[in-house]
Amino acid sequence: MWSYEKRLQYPINIKEPNAKLAQIIISQYGGPDGEMGASMRYLSQRYSMPYREVAGVLTDIGTEELAHLEMVATIVHQLTRNLSMEEIEKSGFANYYVDHTVGVWPQAAGGVPFNACEFQVKGDIITDLTEDMAAEQKARSTYDNILRVIKDPDVCDPIRFLRAREIVHFQRFGEALRMTQDKLNSKNFYAFNPGFDMCEDCGGNKDECCKTC
């Protein structure tokens, strides 16, 4: 279960609304490498993890991603506050406005709606952790691209914080993969899927060991 903290992970106080920026940054809410995909990916992958430590990493990083989702939504919300109809039309925000007014809806910068196909749960620990590492780098690149477009320090500051967290998460997933490989056969990490084929008594392949343990 979860419980809510009534504060942001990092403070956000944007003074100048800017609908054009909001349309770019919303990609980290519901886009292909956004925080919605990140949180749902890690929180969904946990159940088929054969090792408690790795499921723990996914739980804690997935939880932090929910806090990041709230931060990105806050940036979008504050950038679209008190807009006049003229500003909405001038900034190209009218297409979004017609469907959502200034509510926050998960979509990519190009208008593509959020879709669970933006992440995978393969039920194989090496496959899933490798995807997680790539996901952190893709999100880091997206934040790098956002930082090239925006100049407002009120927006850059929280975006830099989010970018730095992607790097820390990448490091932790790398360590989780190393911990996984330490538990597997170093001559063939792919000999069996420990999330499916593992004997709960001996940790070996259940098709081969069950007669003895």
């Binding site: 009534k6 504060r7 942001l8 403070p11 956000i12 106080n13 944007i14 003074k15 100048e16 609304p17 709230e70 939504a73 806050t74 919300h77 504050q78 506050r81 008190n82 009120d154």
Partner: peptide, 13 residues
């Protein structure tokens, strides 16, 4: 008090 507390996204202008 919980329901009356300010919301985290209210900051800025």
């Amino acid at each position: 008090r919980w329901g009356m507390a300010p919301l985290p996204w209210e900051g800025g202008c």
